[in-house]
């Protein structure tokens, strides 16, 4: 399925896909979005690469083989953030800082512990999506 059209479209769309994913991830606290949606959008960007350029070329640009490690690290980050409040004697999944306190802001990004949790979810979802794509891509023997 490698035509000029698909390759051009893929080239044009990959960078915006990642940018949109980052925006969804960051904006999720006052607007629509979260780690899962961001992970799926970024995964779609990678799918575009796979579809347009094939598995071999994608492997050359992206560390696809690390997908599983990325997914598991994401899960670990999310779990650690979720269960860390236990150390302070709070129930799990307690926000830091708590709702009443002033939050440090970077643009629209509010630095609360839930952001770290969502980054973990993002890595998990992206890793799983890319890992399954890679698994499916190995089917096409001619391409590999």
């Amino acid at each position: 399925m490698r035509t000029i059209l698909t390759e051009t479209v893929a080239r044009l769309l990959v960078a915006p896909a990642f940018a949109v994913a980052a925006a969804i991830l960051v904006k999720g606290y006052a607007d629509v979005g979260d780690g899962f949606a961001a992970g799926v959008v970024a995964g779609l960007g990678v799918l575009l690469l796979f579809a347009a350029f094939g598995a071999r070329a994608t492997h050359r640009v992206l560390p696809v083989r690390r997908a599983f490690a990325v997914a598991v690290s994401g899960l670990l980050v999310a779990l650690v953030v979720g269960f860390a409040p236990l150390l302070a004697g709070d129930p799990p999944f307690t926000h830091r800082p708590p709702p009443e306190e002033q939050v440090v802001k970077l643009g629209t990004l509010e630095l609360i512990s839930a952001v770290a949790f969502d980054v973990g979810v993002f890595a998990l979802v992206l890793g799983v999506v890319v890992g399954s794509l890679d698994y499916a891509a190995r089917v096409r023997k001619g391409d590999w």
Binding site: A69, L75, L76, L79, V80, L86, P91, P92
Partner: peptide, 17 residues
């Protein structure tokens, strides 16, 4: 109440690597 769950969940994720 949470500790048994936390221990085994984190352990599972770590050992997956």
């Amino acid at each position: 109440l949470v500790l048994p769950l936390a221990v085994v969940w984190l352990g599972a994720a770590l050992l997956a690597l």
